[in-house]
């Protein structure tokens, strides 16, 4: 979109503003939509995403809640079952664990358990990821856990287009959709078409085409991976970078087509390595493209440690450009 729009139709915007525009647009388009969560109204959102929306839409539709993650997430489930289109904001993925009962035992099960009589068209947004030195109770990346659960969809917008465009598509979906916003992306700015609209939420995107190796990633790690690809290019390695966008369902077709072409793959995932989404993707590659591979599938994940506070340790715990480039070179036998 950005490429085709005329110069004056492009705006400079942050990821945070793009999410806010998406919420504002949804509230305007559909009276059934409302935003509910801790400090979304008067405070403006813990990451300032919803700043200004209270004044525009009022306290009914920008609904501050008490500190009751399970209570208001469950209320979102109930309201969705009764025909509303709630957006529930959970401050971070760590706090979402207090609402896990409602997400897993209610939202994800009710359509099936009721024999298709009731659906839960609910969107739950939350922040995820490390990098702000918030230590071991505010920095984890548990979206891979959520991607384990049938009955929900899991999205990870990494670009401005997706931050702006995924929400509306998610709201139109008849089933619960979780949207994970990496905390390091909120301040990212860039150019976006002023008339940017909704985007599909089913397909992965090739963010950088290449021939030599497939680097498969999502969310905050996308930008590190693209940077690693640029570094690799200086060494004559032409990496393809795939942004998963949707973590559940996974777009196997795009992943496998890329691996069939490059014959090598490294997965970059800010989740812990053991039992990770990266493990799932690696296994799918093995199942579907084993005979195409020229090298073992590699992984760059977080170290098996609660995210520490000091910056040097925090950075050492999560994927970075150097680790990604090294893993790619190892897969190419150029370590």
């Amino acid at each position: 979109m950005a490429q085709t729009a005329a110069q004056e139709d492009v705006v400079e915007i942050s990821y945070r503003e793009a999410v806010r525009e998406a919420i504002r647009d949804a509230l305007k388009r559909d009276q059934r939509v409302f935003l509910m969560g801790e400090d979304v109204g008067r405070y403006g959102g813990c990451y300032a995403v919803s700043k200004g929306l209270l004044a525009e839409f009022g306290p009914d539709r920008i609904r501050d809640t008490p500190l009751s993650e399970s209570g208001f997430t469950g209320a979102g489930v109930g309201a969705a079952m009764a025909g509303m289109r709630p957006i529930v904001e959970l401050m971070t993925v760590n706090f979402s664990l207090l609402a896990l009962d409602q997400i897993l035992n209610s939202a994800a099960t009710i359509r099936h358990m009721s024999g298709n009589q009731f659906g839960v068209p609910l969107v739950i947004r939350m922040a995820t990821g490390a990098g702000r030195q918030l230590a071991a109770q505010h920095s984890h990346s548990l979206e891979g856990w959520y991607a384990h659960i049938p009955g929900i969809k899991v999205l990870a917008p990494a670009t401005l287009e997706d931050a702006r465009g995924m929400l509306w598509t998610a709201l139109e979906d008849p089933d619960p959709v979780l949207i994970f916003e990496n905390v390091m992306l909120y301040n990212m700015t860039g150019r976006l078409a002023a008339n940017a609209e909704s985007v599909d939420i089913a397909r992965a995107a090739v963010r950088r085409p290449g021939q030599d190796i497939s680097l498969i990633t999502y969310g905050g790690s996308l930008w590190k991976t693209l940077e690693a690809a640029s570094t690799l290019a200086t060494e004559n390695i032409d990496a393809e970078v795939i942004d998963l966008r949707s973590l559940r369902p996974l777009d196997d077709a795009t992943i496998i087509a890329s691996v069939n072409k490059t014959r090598r793959a490294v997965i970059v995932d800010e989740g812990w390595r053991s039992g990770s989404l990266a493990a799932e993707i690696g296994m799918r590659i093995v199942e579907q493209a084993f005979w195409e591979l020229d090298a073992p599938v590699g992984r760059v994940c977080s170290e098996e440690v609660p995210i520490p506070y000091p910056r040097h340790l925090e950075q050492a715990a999560i994927p970075d450009v150097a680790k990604i480039a090294a893993a790619a070179k190892a897969a190419l036998g150029r370590a």
Binding site: G71, G74, A75, G76, V77, A79, M81, M84, M113
Partner: peptide, 23 residues
């Protein structure tokens, strides 16, 4: 709106159903 087998799990749902009705 269901038999809910999570003890306490139905209460938030009821709140949400009523919230939708109110809105």
């Amino acid at each position: 709106y269901g038999g809910n087998a999570i003890v306490g799990g139905g209460l938030p749902l009821a709140v949400g159903l009523a919230l939708a009705g109110r809105m």
